[in-house]
Design a protein around this nucleic acid. Structure first.
Length: 309
RNA sequence: GCCGCUGUAGCUCAGUCGGUAGAGCAGAGGACUGAAAAUCCUCGUGUCAUCAGUUCGAUUCUGAUCGGCGGCA
């Protein structure tokens, strides 16, 4: 079976992925790997690629969903598979790019066998969490899935909820489902991880948040609120929006506090992304400054498929 | 200039009735089984402002000096 070549360009927020993509404008189309850039009405806060970039290289999975809809790893893998096939059939090289390490891991290895997330069951468990408290849920998990019980930290209510959700949905413990441990055969991946010095990355993040405010992030948030989006909507949980919701809820921040908070949350996010990405194997790690060295590797990868940049 | 308060971790501060000190935040490292820009775990040595005095022993008490804040002139 012929494999589909897929170039993946990933890295922490603000490392400089978007600009780098223009190198591929002749041969590729982009599959967006940022979980919040999938949403509409959130261009500023999610640093969505600008018009001049999307005009030059086709982007998929950006700005197509309203913020009240969930878009998780399952959706990403499904859509990503569909798009990669289509792009390759069109005679182009699929280029997956973004910062979501969890989506990427699921895309490379394939989804685990465990059932997909069920918002209805999850909500019931969340209500129990509020009424009965976390201890009650933990005792149930201990009985029903001791392996997960031991693996999940007692304060990680998010994962405790998920483990119980799987049990209630399938009647089987989460830990009994196989999780894939090798990359899927249907793809030939070229993994390029963009990275910079921590200090430099952080100052790029800070600068970018300043620019978001200059470009009207506050107005963008107000518009979203006017459209009726709020705490409960997945899109609004993102950095750059949840901080404003916090301000509304507590009333104890100024706009300039919020700006600093957004910078800080973005820095922490970048750190978490880096930690996660480091786990991936066969990654070419390189600063975006060294584009020649990266492009050499891309050329030798593409030569197998008679492509050139 | 005088009076009062104050000086402890990068920041905000606690504390030691005299036996060389600890929280929050920041920061660092890590986890990640279909919500993931989510969620969670681990990590605290610093001339306790400086100099002198008392003391077996001072970051702690006393004095002076130098900062800061407030009040009065």
């Amino acid at each position: 079976m012929n494999k589909i070549p897929v170039i993946v360009i990933f890295g922490p927020t603000a490392v400089g992925k978007t600009e780098f993509l223009l190198n591929f404008s002749r041969i590729s189309e982009i599959v967006n790997l940022d979980s919040l850039q999938v949403y509409k009405y959130m261009d500023i806060g999610t640093a969505a690629p600008e018009r001049e970039i999307t005009d030059r290289i086709k982007h998929h999975l950006t700005g197509f969903l309203t913020p009240d809809r969930e878009f998780g790893a399952g959706e990403f893998v499904r859509e990503g598979d569909r798009l990669c096939s289509e792009i390759y059939e069109r005679g182009r090289i699929p280029l997956v790019s973004g910062g979501n390490a969890f989506f990427l891991m699921n895309f490379i290895y394939g989804l685990p066998e465990s059932p997909e997330s069920s918002p209805e069951i999850r909500e019931k468990i969340q209500i129990r969490l509020e009424t009965e408290g976390p201890e009650s849920l933990r005792r149930e998990l201990e009985k029903v899935d001791p392996v997960s019980f031991n693996r999940i930290s007692e304060n990680d209510h998010y994962r405790i909820t998920r483990a119980l959700e799987v049990f209630h949905a399938s009647g089987r413990p989460l830990s009994s489902f196989k999780v894939p441990d090798r990359p899927r055969e249907k793809y030939d991946f070229l993994l390029i991880g963009l990275i910079r010095d921590r200090e430099e990355l952080y100052s790029r993040i800070n600068r970018r948040v300043e620019i978001m405010f200059e470009n009207g992030l506050v107005d963008e948030y107000r518009k979203l609120r006017k459209m009726g989006y709020g705490e409960a909507d997945p899109g609004m949980s993102g950095i750059g929006y949840s901080e404003f919701l916090l301000m509304e809820r507590t009333g104890c921040f100024t706009i300039s506090d919020i700006k600093e908070l957004i910078k800080q949350d973005s820095r922490k996010y970048a750190k978490r992304q880096i930690t996660f990405f480091k786990k991936l194997e066969n990654v070419i790690w390189e600063s975006p400054e060294n584009s020649d060295s990266i492009l050499d590797k891309v050329r030798s990868f593409l030569s197998k498929y008679n492509f050139n940049i």
